[in-house]
Amino acid sequence: MIDKNAFIDKTAEISGTAEIAANVYIGKNCKIGENVKIGYGSVIESNTEIGDGTIISPNVNLGGAPQDISYKGEDTKLIIGKNCIIREFAFIHRASTKEEWVTTIGDNCYIMASCHVAHDCRIGNNVIITSYAALAGHVHVDDGVIIGGGAGVHQFTRIGRQAMVGGYAKITKDVPPYALVDGNPARLFGLNMIGLKRRGIPPEVRNELKKAYNILVNMDYVLEDVVTQIASLTQYEEVKIFLDFIKKSKRGIMRRGE
């Protein structure tokens, strides 16, 4: 159902099961999936795809041009996955041309009120971004991450799988998978053991991850030694993910703990 007071560009593709409220603007080359709901006054500017079952609250702005002074109006994209919830006054921008021309939000994400997700961000599945958090350009967030309210994440930073970021934390280096981080500047506070238990990760795997974490925060090791030491542990899947994340860090991995 499309309200008579909504504006839909003639190039937009809208599923017959979508619900579009009054005063919604949907611009050129947008695709709105099955059972999507878009609340009053929201703006979907252009080149944006919204997956099936996603709910957009009132006064959300999606698919605006990247806040990048080098951007020259190219047809970059924003793709939002299935069954997401995006709350009031959240802003998510299309990509620049510096990476792969697309900003992506995975499936089953919850992006709360007044959040900002900037150009070229890559957000995985089942991610929660709490109110007033801001992600700068080119931030990559892996599956299952929780970002606390008011947190700020520096451009080109990565946040590893199932990490938890505290409210108002200042993130300037890569956050290891499964880690708890907080503070300004942010530092490590151990592993997200509660989250690992909830996922059914066995005790022996959690113990090996704890060894990997202790190696990482041991500042007597240079980073090459950290990689070697963790590689000597039992290579459960979660340990491999932890190690691979460290190897691929370009901005610098967060190491200092409490």
Rank of each mutant, 00 (worst) to 15 (best):
K10T: 14
A18I: 11
V24N: 01
G27H: 04
N29H: 15
K31C: 03
E34T: 02
K37F: 12
S42E: 13
I44D: 02
T48M: 05
E49W: 13
D52G: 01
P58G: 01
P58F: 01
L62Q: 08
Y71S: 04
I85H: 02
F89T: 04
T103M: 07
T103H: 03
T104N: 09
I105S: 00
G106C: 03
S114G: 02
C115E: 01
G124T: 10
G124R: 09
G124L: 07
G124C: 14
T130K: 01
S131Q: 09
H140V: 13
D143M: 12
V145I: 02
I146T: 15
I146F: 15
G150Q: 07
V153A: 10
M164G: 02
V165L: 10
A169I: 08
K170D: 11
I171E: 05
D174L: 04
D182Y: 08
G183R: 07
N184H: 06
P185N: 05
G190D: 12
L191M: 11
L196P: 01
K197V: 10
R199N: 13
R199Y: 09
E204H: 14
V205H: 06
R206W: 06
K211L: 11
N214W: 09
L216D: 00
I230G: 07
E237Q: 15
I241R: 05
I241K: 08
L243G: 09
I246H: 02
G252V: 14
M254E: 14
